[in-house]
Write a protein that binds this DNA or RNA. Sequence first.
DNA 1: CTCTTTGCAAAAGTTTTGCACGCTC
DNA 2: GAGCGTGCAAAACTTTTGCAAAGAG
Lengths: 158, 158
Amino acid sequence: MNSISDRDIAEAWTQTLREHGYRVTGPRKLVMEIITSSASALTPQEIYQASLEKDRSLGIASVYRTVDMLTELELVEHIHQPGGCHGIWPVFKGHNHHLVCSDCGQVRVVPGEEGIEQYIQKVEDLTGYRVDEHWLQFIGLCTICKRKGGQENPLETG
Amino acid sequence: MNSISDRDIAEAWTQTLREHGYRVTGPRKLVMEIITSSASALTPQEIYQASLEKDRSLGIASVYRTVDMLTELELVEHIHQPGGCHGIWPVFKGHNHHLVCSDCGQVRVVPGEEGIEQYIQKVEDLTGYRVDEHWLQFIGLCTICKRKGGQENPLETG
DNA sequence: CTCTTTGCAAAAGTTTTGCACGCTC
DNA sequence: GAGCGTGCAAAACTTTTGCAAAGAG
């Protein structure tokens, strides 16, 4: 995540909440902290489990409500993983694509690429659709899992 | 779709089941028929609902079991849609990308593109990951919904 | 002080599992 | 006929909702 720290992101997010008239509360901060500091995309259940390991407790309903709110504010998106697709992942500025490790679940963001734009144009011409959005995800092995030979511990279904 | 009819696909699928030692039964044929003849990706629940509208009945458990079997045989894949990602969609030969209409849910398949291969190479060099798979999906409006002005009837969450 | 947000518990919805019977091969 | 696959019903799990009380602004 380059020069921006997880903590900076969390602060920018609280700013966005306030701008939209949402209150910044303890449970919301905890959920945002867990999401922004995770190396992999988490399900609402996993976020809840992570909260149990911290000092502060949290109701599962608040996790769902906070995730819905963050989704609506476009601060997170749902990402597609092998075996399930409920991972919640922070949206970063600009268009990015996701690289998911099929062994450890780690997510890495890679910059968008102009080559895709040309392809989209081609698809529009070919099909007559109007393309508004695209999701490009890569599934593979991260550097560490590649070294280990991979596939020993495939992504939990999540 | 092009030159291959839905019926041909269904026949090819039953062939694959036999080759893998699975029996070809009424419920399985019905599920396969519903999946291959749908214009949009369906959830297991939607497949079950569709079966109720046909003459033959079907247990919801059989839908789940059949979908699992088809997924294992790589005859279908789960596709990611705005608002949810449980759509079941037939896998066609070769690598394709999906174009999902955000208004009516219709899915269209578009051919893979070599430009992506170069991009993958770039991503591997940049990140050190080994990329095994990629999912590229486009979200937009199909020809019909585009004409209607779109977004009147956004995809049910499914 | 107002009114949003919370945790809890119940409800609704989805997916999985066990089992006796039926059907494919 | 052997044994896989079925529907049913129960269980497990996930997500949503209603409400009184707590807490942010």
